[in-house]
């Protein structure tokens, strides 16, 4: 079981993600904006972060950059409704290990989580 931090300003998205991750046997913690997410990361030291892109205040990309500054080994999966290939290239260049698209699909989420966690263990 891994501890996964979800950073997303949508309660609906967090709820959907929580159901999928907990069904996959993971422990979840949540933050509804980037600042709270960075605090939670520092306090909770999660194994993985699921990060939304379009958020009020700090954007997902800014949060990703800060996370990687705090912890160059931070494992981050971006979960976004943005389906553009250019966005995938952008987040991968910023250090995200993976990108999945909303609406969230259970198998795709759990596969991305397993791949990302196994990659560096």
């Amino acid at each position: 079981m891994s501890k996964i931090l979800m950073i997303d300003d949508s309660g609906l998205s967090r709820r959907m993600m929580r159901q999928i991750l907990e069904a996959g046997g993971h422990e979840t913690i949540e933050a509804s904006d980037g600042i709270a997410g960075l605090e939670q990361y520092f306090l909770e030291k999660p194994d993985l972060v699921m990060l939304d892109m379009t958020m009020a205040g700090m954007s997902g990309l800014e949060v990703l950059e800060k996370l990687r500054q705090m912890d160059p080994n931070a494992k981050v999966i971006v979960a976004t409704a943005d389906i553009q290939s250019s966005t995938r290239a952008l987040v991968e260049a910023a250090g995200a290990k993976n990108m999945i698209n909303k609406p969230l699909e259970k198998d795709a989420v759990l596969r991305a989580v397993a791949d990302t966690l196994n990659e560096t263990r």
Partner: peptide
Amino acid sequence: EVLTEIGNIILNACLGMFGN
């Protein structure tokens, strides 16, 4: 919150395809 996220997903799907 539900309506906003539905809008977010649908509009991104549409405009993202434009971008691609």
